[in-house]
Amino acid sequence: MAEKIEKHREGSIILQEDSPEKMEVEVTEVKTSGDYNKEPVFIYHQWCKRCGICSTFCPTGTLGRNPDGSPFVEHPEKCIHCMTCDRLCPDFAITGAKRK
């Protein structure tokens, strides 16, 4: 267990995956574009609690919401780098790229 916690802290595994509550939830397809360097917003899914604040308050609709509630970058070209999602994420799970 201690080894698992250590791995969880490093971010390489999600500890909750093993809990029985999580196993019952139907696995939904999580959409990501895959290449984080090209996206204006980086979402760190290990820290995300799926509250939906970022996708609700995104002024241009850059962020969408997966069926399980987690956010994903739906329209990267729409981002205006306002950093609203970066500031309003309660879990520090979103890092917005600064305007170039």
């Binding site: 802290r9 609690k49 309660p90 879990d91 520090f92 790229a97």
Partner: peptide, 29 residues
């Protein structure tokens, strides 16, 4: 694998993250 922002550099990374507050709690903000 996460790009660092200002807030991250002030956190104690030996504590358990994600933090203890419920989903959507304003304390993190």
């Amino acid at each position: 694998n996460q790009p660092q922002k200002t807030v991250h550099s002030y956190l104690r990374h030996n504590k358990k993250f994600p933090h203890v507050w419920c989903a959507g709690c304003s304390n993190g903000i």
